[in-house]
Amino acid sequence: MNDAMLLREIQAEYSNSAGLVVQKSGKLIYENYFDGHKETDSIHIFSVTKSITSILIGIAIDQGYIKSVDQKVLEFFPSYIIKRRENTIQNITLKNLLTMTAPYKYKWEPYTKVYSSEDWIKAALDLLGGNGTIGDFKYSTVGAQILTGVLENATGESMLKFSEKNLFTPLAISVPTPISFANKEEHIAFIKNKNVSGWVVDPKGSPTSGWGLTLSPKDMAKIGQLCLNQGNWNGKQLVSACWMKESTKEHARWNDLPYGYLWWSLDTDGSGTFAALGDSGSTIYVNPKEQVVIAIACRFKPRAKPRIELINKFILPQIK
């Protein structure tokens, strides 16, 4: 790879990049870290967390804890009390949460209301439904928090423990320690600090499903390689190939961008490409046709450019 050209582009247009890992056919072909970051540093991966949650949902289905994505969301919350005149919520399915086609009772996401509450799952459930139409795409980070409750209620154990046992330990990824915030300032510091580690949890100890996980670029590449291998890792099927195929294909669409089960489907050329995309540019990119996995970890930066153009113009052409 033309390292000088790539570095110039990153410095000029993607200066908040912390680390870049490129793999071809399962082998590391490029690795670099920027702005003082090291190989072992973990970074908050923002909404890339959603795609990892999708893998965990698939594992729970494979293991029989969840019957189907067509199950109604409220089946997992039998004690939840529905407010009067609220009928929409009863018909929302797990698939609607996974494909961002569930309606919510807000115009703009009420992050502060949810993340300052004592129970983030219930706070998110209270926002589900309303007068919107089931099936219309509405991207929701707070709504994704409901999936934590689905996993924990279905499996009977914490999402942290379930992910440790079924994903992180098999991939030899250091198990994220729970992080909680005492105030708004600690929350902001977590998002903005250069090197953070762990997984954000609510006051009850349940982790975030839509953001809040930290990983190193190499850890992100392991997740990508697992997905490229259709859920297989060193001969062991961690999540079914059927789930990986189903979860990374188009089920919904936001403008011209196809969306799967918490994955973005980028297959515009028959390559089967899909990606996990997070705020500030963090990316796990998987191209099955070229057998390429690219992991990019990025520090927080408002309105940072997505990394897909960087990948398509300055990385992929050099490794095909």
Rank of each mutant, 00 (worst) to 15 (best):
E309M: 04
V175I: 09
Y30R: 05
E246K: 05
R8C: 14
A304W: 05
T49Q: 06
S206N: 07
Q291P: 01
E157A: 15
R8I: 12
M244C: 13
K313D: 10
S25Q: 11
A241K: 14
G36S: 06
G36A: 06
T101M: 09
Y30L: 11
V22G: 09
V21Y: 11
R307M: 13
E75T: 09
Y285A: 13
D3Q: 14
Y30P: 02
D279Y: 15
G260I: 11
P306A: 15
G235P: 03
G156A: 07
A182G: 10
P103D: 05
Y33M: 07
G224S: 13
I29M: 08
E109Q: 04
N91R: 04
A102R: 04
Q63F: 15
W263H: 06
V73G: 10
V175H: 02
K24I: 10
G224R: 03
K72L: 14
Q90A: 15
L28P: 10
V175F: 13
M244A: 10
P288M: 12
L127V: 00
K222S: 10
A182R: 06
H44Y: 14
G143W: 01
S174E: 10
G149I: 02
G143N: 03
G210M: 11
V114P: 00
C227E: 09
V201F: 06
I55R: 11
L127R: 00
K72E: 14
G231W: 03
A276T: 08
K67A: 15
A252D: 01
V292R: 07
S25G: 08
Y33A: 12
K313E: 12
A124V: 00
V239F: 05
K305M: 14
G143D: 04
K249P: 01
T169Q: 08
K320M: 08
V114Y: 00
I319K: 07
G130K: 05
R8G: 10
D70G: 13
S79E: 02
D256T: 15
I188G: 01
P170T: 04
E309N: 04
I146S: 10
I179N: 07
P306K: 13
T208H: 09
P176Y: 10
S271H: 10
A189K: 14
L127W: 00
I45E: 04
V22W: 12
G235V: 12
S54K: 03
Y115H: 06
T141H: 05
V21F: 11
V239E: 05
Y33V: 06
V69H: 05
R85Q: 05
I284M: 10
I294K: 01
F168C: 03
W264S: 09
I29H: 09
S79F: 01
S17C: 14
T214N: 05
I55W: 08
Q23E: 09
A12E: 04
H44K: 02
D62C: 10
A60C: 13
K245F: 14
G212E: 07
G130I: 05
I92S: 03
N183H: 07
L226Q: 03
